[in-house]
Amino acid sequence: MNATQNTWPWKVLLAVILIGMAAAIYGSVKKIDYEWRWYRVPQYFVYQGEEVHKIPFDGRITAVVANGDVSTVTMTSESDEVKTVTVDTKTIKVSEGEDLFVGDTVGFTATWHLGPLVKGLWTTMWLSAISSVLALAIGLCTGLARISKNYTVNMLAAIYVEIIRGTPLLVQIFIAYFFIGTVFNLSRNVAGVGALALFAGAYVAEIVRAGIQSIPRGQMEAARSLGMTMPQAMMDIVLPQAFKRILPPLSGQFISLIKDSSLVSVIAITDLTKSGREIITSTFATFEVWLVVAAMYLLVTSLLSQLVFYMERRLAISD
């Protein structure tokens, strides 16, 4: 057999399968009566909002100076208080010398606002980021406890991991918010982050434990035989090697965490998923919004995968 194989027939096959699946979906959607309204989606990323500028007192417009697209309006009150506002020229509702009552509209300015999809994505990202950092800390401590020779420490860690891995995340989030959150008066964000961190921490703990145990015992013995203490040997010798090995499963766990964070929408945290649901209630663009939301999750998770891939290559220099 040839060492260099021709791959293009398989590439063609792949393309045919993918196109076939896309066509099948397209055909099925055609059959049902759904009107695609993609044009309604972009406004939920960013939109232009109008800000109203009103006169804060009874008074008179003393000057209107146009400067291209914007104009400066000077207002003077009956007690000779002077105030200026800048509004878009096209939207000016007043002219020089006009008398106005308090609250009358002078004009508008248009400003760009971030839409709910971007805000939701931001919430999802910081929620996942904080949870990941906490999960890593919890997982590291629990993982070390799991390999400890101390019975109590070891069992406490084992019980924690068992409970978390044996119950659904959704139920844990409910308990964290409705039970623990009520008892300790926690905000929904704290409850959400806590539940996610504890959940991921249990899995990280098992990854860390397996990683440490995969490092040959001789490494620890060599470090100890040089007079290094247990913590020194752990920090300088075992954990750096273990980290390199657990990076792939660890990144998988964090990608899971980003996806699982969508469950916190059930306790009314406005993350990407909840934003999507809210948009649907006002647009009924169900298909478009969910597809966009899925694509945004995919974007974040694939960026993370790329980052980890890059780190793996950097760490591989000593192999």
Partner: peptide, 13 residues
Amino acid sequence: VGMVFQQFNLFPH
């Protein structure tokens, strides 16, 4: 007390 092992046990990283 220095020790030399059968499997060397150098720190690979």
